[in-house]
């Protein structure tokens, strides 16, 4: 039964979170991975803290059967970080799928079940992880779109000034005026 599985997972939470953090940390280089695992302070170690807080929030949300809208912000905080780091899209979201393997192994590896796990409950849980994975694609794309939008905005600022200058100069020509004092040059903020 789902509740039973959730109880087991709740009991196994520290071990599962540790393994999940190991998986995500391993995607960074050696020294950095150690740092991420060691970062407990929100402000002086924001990446490690955010990832750890995010993983725990996700896991709690899953076992407490919280609505996905409530879980998504935890996912978003991790995805946003990975969306601007050196990861391909698949690498950025792969950690979600690893939770399946970890849960499957940890739930069997317990005296409560004596090696027998409620397959239906496990499948249902895995479906929720799949849903999270789908949400993570959306979040990843949203983050990347935002990055491109920021780049475009900055370029637009420059082009805007150029266009403004062109427009003014055209207007002046139409009015038979020389280029007057209202000429602007591109901005280099």
């Amino acid at each position: 039964m789902a509740t039973k599985l959730n109880d087991i997972l709740r009991k196994k939470k520290p071990a599962i979170l540790k393994r999940w953090l190991d998986v995500i940390s391993a995607t960074y280089s050696g020294e950095a991975a150690a740092f991420i695992k060691g970062q407990k302070n929100q402000f002086t170690g924001p990446m490690g803290y955010t990832i750890q807080e995010g993983l725990e929030g996700l896991f709690d949300g899953l076992i407490d059967e919280a609505p996905f809208e409530e879980i998504a912000p935890f996912l978003e905080s991790i995805i946003k970080i990975r969306a601007v780091q050196d990861f391909s899209p698949s690498q950025a979201v792969a950690f979600i799928f690893h939770l399946k393997k970890i849960i499957s192994e940890e739930s069997q590896n317990t005296s409560d079940t004596r090696g027998v796990v409620d397959t239906a409950a496990l499948t249902a849980f895995e479906l929720k992880i799949d849903t999270l994975a789908l949400i993570s694609f959306d979040l990843y794309m949203e983050a990347r779109d935002k990055v491109y939008q920021l780049k475009t905005n900055e370029s637009n600022d420059m082009v805007f000034r150029l266009l403004q200058k062109e427009r003014r100069s055209c207007e002046m020509q139409e009015q038979g005026l020389e280029q007057g004092p209202n000429i602007e040059t591109p901005i280099l903020k």
Partner: peptide, 15 residues
């Protein structure tokens, strides 16, 4: 671990 670039990139050469 005091450099914001290291904290944000995890690249050891940013230490």
């Amino acid at each position: 671990d005091k450099c914001h670039f290291f904290l944000g990139t995890g690249d050891p050469k940013n230490m």
